[in-house]
């Protein structure tokens, strides 16, 4: 899942970015409203964590303009203003959730995860495909009841495919949602990660779940290609 953090406080921005990256998110950061709007319009984010009081462009103005330009990422407003009218104003501007500073980082992570699930139409935190279980909260994967140890990047790819179950996902889409701007993405990084993922999921002679659709990308499905 790819997340954009728009926050003018460098310390807070870097702490949130680092914390979310450790949770397996691909995280980009912007320090002011104009930069944030540019990122939101040029990259397809699953969740945008947005401060309201920003230099250059107010967070609410950013949100309004982003929605007008068709940005459909889930938006979590992060602000120090807790008055009801402030919350209403934020939600009416197109935000999906609201978190008041100071906040628990665990709560921020939980809300970002919930918004990511909503983005892909999932309600449960656990996604099941045949005998495969992907626990999006615990970031754990089981197949046939056996725990499978995945690297963070491999888990991120699997979770994104699981959210898009039975739908083909292109390499570029996977790159966009799994890697952030700081990541050094090699040309075959996705293919290599998918190969490793298939190998790790191939336990106890289970049938393959990740299939290649030529010209379309990869699909996670219990049915064949």
């Amino acid at each position: 899942m790819r997340v954009l953090v728009v926050e003018d406080s460098a310390r807070l921005r870097e702490a949130v970015q680092t914390g979310l990256q450790r949770q397996g998110f691909a995280v980009d950061a912007a320090a002011d409203g104009r930069q944030g709007l540019l990122c939101a319009r040029t990259t397809e984010y699953d969740v945008i964590v947005l401060d309201i009081m920003l230099p250059e462009m107010d967070g609410l103005d950013l949100l309004t303009e982003a929605r007008a330009k068709g940005v459909d990422a889930m938006v979590l407003l992060l602000t120090a203003r807790d008055a009801v009218e402030d919350r209403v104003k934020g939600l009416q501007a197109g935000a999906d959730d609201y978190l008041v500073k100071p906040f628990s980082f665990d709560e921020l992570v939980a809300r970002v995860q919930a918004l990511a699930r909503r983005k892909h139409g999932a309600r449960s935190t656990t996604i099941r495909v045949d005998d495969l279980e992907v626990d999006a909260t615990a970031k754990k994967v089981k197949r046939g009841g056996i725990d499978i140890d995945l690297k963070p990047r491999e888990y991120a790819i699997l979770e994104y495919l699981a959210h898009r179950i039975n739908r083909p996902v292109s390499r570029s889409e996977l790159e966009e949602h799994v890697y952030d701007e700081e990541s050094q993405v090699r040309s075959n990084a996705i293919d290599s990660a998918i190969c490793n993922l298939r190998a790790r999921l191939n336990v106890a002679s289970c049938r393959p779940l990740i299939h290649t659709r030529r010209g379309l990308g990869y699909v996670l499905s219990e049915q064949g290609p």
Binding site: S9, R11, L12, A15, T18, G19, A80, P102, F103, F105
Partner: peptide, 25 residues
């Protein structure tokens, strides 16, 4: 009061988030 709370919440949020994130660092 609202403004003061706002201005003090941001640094408190910075401290709290940095501390919570650093706990796993």
């Amino acid at each position: 009061a609202s403004n003061a709370a706002h201005e003090l919440r941001t640094p408190v949020a910075e401290v709290r988030t940095m501390a919570e994130v650093a706990a796993d660092a």
